[in-house]
Design a binder for these strands. Structure first.
Length: 677
DNA sequence: TAATGGGGGTTTTTT
DNA sequence: ACCCCCATTA
């Protein structure tokens, strides 16, 4: 008998203790998905399955840790730690490191983060010389997402371009040439981007011998958030199982919010097409939200044209429930003030700041609120948006880590050379070219680079001689403990960072923390890859001296709040154009994904739900210019009937003004222009 | 010829 | 706030 058994309802118990499968669990928000998954892992262990023969694929590394942590607490067994868990990308990375030779990858292959990947694409574009002089072509970021979308969905480039960048579909052939060059360049440099991790893993699994070996190394495979898998990931799962039925998929079609990454809830809904002999268990009893909040969620679900699989059933006692509210604010400024007031009010009532979250569609939607919170000295942390990894100096040190194991990584060289004063793209490139051999390749080993270093000195400005000497010395140091080597690199990079940035000292402090991350690794390139794949998710912001120690309000994009729950949820900017986002209105599927996103936001709440709509948006271009917002189209009459509408006195006065229907001119104009394309 | 700094236009979501 | 382009400067 496993420990969590008594805490499960009959459906959860059935799922947790199901036989071999394949099993599909459709689980709405708050129905105990994590509990059930943890209980299933526990059940399997109880029945003698060896921990490291269980593979738990989750959407973030954090949720894998959560599940494994729960099981560990229940069983008090250290071996539980050995359950293989993580994201598709991190497991792919592990697998490829282990079997690099079999898939023809160099031992120290590097992993490009999305920013580097776009930069490489740009570099290849300028090398090819095509696509530069002519008319508007997609920017590097757009090109990168076209590439990613195409490979992750299996849709041809032309198809993806006519859907996403119809205005340049005529350049399809050139973009295709660029992508081919991009792929072979990554290969030549020993680099994989995030998409490659999945693509190479899939190829490994499809190989007759290696595939069988890899599939055979796991008895049970469990997948969380299955509504957000894409074609490549489904192929990977099929390769991992190769007809073995021991697969558990957990998901909720109503929470599919990663279509932009090539995911589709169809894989969950049509799972029987991919996995023969499928059994389905549906969890509908909601243990998270109060009844009035569930009414909001179900009203939202009822508006979805195709409906959602599961309707949530109330399990939380209704007495004492607080009605959810819809607050109309004059403008963003007032919204920030009201939200801050409301947060403090709830805090006074005993709801810790950590148990409250402000959720929004786009990372910048909290800008004004962040100012208000800082002003009032309310501490907060923000998830989503700006990331530690994107800080340039962090990428600089990670580039050095990558070079230690792969001297061919031109992207990393390019980055480091440009840190030197007087060195821009042209000189950096010449320095790299000077290191090439007859075959246009850089040496694989850093020793060989070191021997050719005098050529680099000829190219670079004289005043950089000393820093470049320190750099190559640190890079080519051998037989160092990773931690020591990392610190050596940090020291060598310090003069470069001091020369390159206006505010070098806080940056150097950051790097100290990054060096410490190298204490339990064998390879620095592993640390670089791990940092890219699992960057610290939140940016802490010191809002002055914290008034309330050890407690902070959570600000998060809805995407980053997936899987979490809070006692109180504040959804801001519920205005059409912001939520749903203007950018997603092009297609019906886009709009439906926004609706699911709104559903995800609302269903994060346990007891308190407040939705805010600013009525007026100021334009930053012209002072005193503004436009009027309409409440989000998701706030239909039936949804509103589940909400307690609050109109503040000052708001009512403004409502009396003539209110044109335009939301915000930027959005309206861009929509009109897009019809021309 | 190349680096750098200023100014203008834009801004979804993330492994 | 960031990215891109352009003009200026070395």
């Amino acid at each position: 008998m496993y420990a969590s058994r008594q805490q499960l309802n009959p459906r959860q118990l059935e799922a947790a203790s199901f036989g071999d499968g394949p099993l599909r669990v459709l689980a709405g928000p708050g129905t105990g998905k994590t509990t059930t998954l943890s209980a299933r892992v526990e059940f399997l262990l109880e029945h003698g399955v060896v921990p490291d023969r269980i593979l738990l694929l989750t959407f973030t590394r954090r949720s894998a840790r959560d599940i494994i942590g729960r099981v560990r607490a229940l069983r008090r067994d250290e071996r539980v730690q050995r359950v293989a868990g993580g994201t598709f990308h991190s497991v792919a990375h592990h697998t490829l490191r282990r079997h690099h030779a079999a898939v023809g990858l160099p031992e120290g292959f590097g992993v490009l983060d999305p920013g580097d990947s776009a930069d490489l694409l740009d570099l290849v574009r300028s090398d090819l010389g095509i696509l530069s002089g002519e008319r508007r072509l997609p920017k590097k970021g757009t090109l990168a997402s076209l590439y990613s979308r195409s490979v992750n969905t299996g849709v041809s480039l032309r198809g993806v371009m006519s859907e996403n960048t119809p205005w340049c579909v005529e350049h399809c052939d050139e973009v295709a040439t660029l992508f081919r060059a991009f792929v072979s360049r990554k290969h030549a440099l020993g680099l994989l981007d995030f998409d490659d991790l999945l693509l190479f893993w899939r190829v490994a699994l499809q190989h007759e011998v290696l595939g069988a070996k890899l599939a055979g190394s796991f008895d049970h495979v469990l997948v969380d958030e299955f509504q957000d898998v894409n074609l490549v990931q489904v192929d990977i799962l099929r390769g991992l199982r190769q007809g073995d039925p021991r697969l558990t998929m957990v998901g909720d079609d109503a929470q599919a919010i990663y279509g932009f990454r090539g995911a589709s809830p169809r894989y969950l809904l049509d799972a029987e097409k991919y996995f023969e002999g499928l059994t389905t268990i549906t969890l509908e009893a909601n243990y998270r939200s109060s009844a009035p909040i569930l009414h909001v969620a179900n009203a939202l679900a009822a508006d979805a044209p195709e409906g959602f699989c599961a309707v949530l059933r109330e399990e939380v006692p209704t007495n004492g429930a607080v009605p959810p509210t819809l607050t109309h604010c004059v403008d963003e400024r007032q919204q920030s003030e009201i939200v801050a007031d409301r947060v403090l009010e709830l805090y006074e009532e005993g709801v810790l700041l950590q148990r409250q979250a402000v959720l929004f569609r786009a990372a910048h939607h909290s800008d004004d609120l962040e100012i208000e919170l800082s002003r009032r000295r309310i501490p907060f942390i923000k998830y989503g948006g700006l990331r530690y990894l994107e800080a340039a100096h962090v990428k600089d040190l990670l580039a050095a880590f990558r070079l230690v194991d792969n001297a061919r990584d031109e992207m990393a060289w390019f980055r480091l050379f440009q840190l030197m004063p007087g060195v821009g793209p042209a000189k950096a490139r010449r320095a790299i070219d000077s290191l090439r051999d007859d075959h246009d390749l850089l040496p694989l080993s850093m020793e060989a680079v070191s021997q050719r270093w005098s050529r680099v000195l000829d190219v670079l400005p004289n005043e950089t001689a000393e820093m470049s000497h320190e750099l190559i010395t640190a890079l080519s140091a051998r037989n160092q403990e990773p931690l020591v080597h990392a610190d050596l690199l940090r020291h060598a990079l310090a003069p470069l960072i001091i020369a390159a940035y206006d505010d070098p000292y806080p940056r150097l402090e950051d790097l100290g923390a990054l060096v410490l991350a190298c204490s339990d690794t064998t390879r620095l390139s592993d640390v670089a890859a791990a940092q890219a794949l699992d960057p610290p998710a939140c940016t802490g912001t010191l809002a002055g001296p914290p008034l309330m120690d050890e407690d902070w309000l959570v600000l998060s994009t809805v995407h980053s709040a997936k899987g979490l729950e809070f006692d109180a949820v504040h959804v801001i900017h519920a205005a059409d154009g912001n939520f749903p986002s203007d950018m997603s209105l092009g297609t019906p599927e886009g709009l439906e994904e926004e609706r699911r996103l709104f559903y995800v936001a609302v269903t994060r709440a346990r007891r308190h739900l407040s939705i805010y709509v600013p009525l007026r948006y100021h334009h930053h271009r012209v002072r005193d210019d503004h436009s009027w917002a309409q409440p989000s189209r998701f706030l239909s009459d039936s949804v509103r009937s589940t909400l307690n509408e609050l109109s503040l006195p000052s708001v009512i006065a403004h409502e009396a003004e003539p209110s044109p229907t335009v939301i915000d001119s930027f959005g309206a104009v861009s929509r009109q222009i897009s019809e021309l394309w």
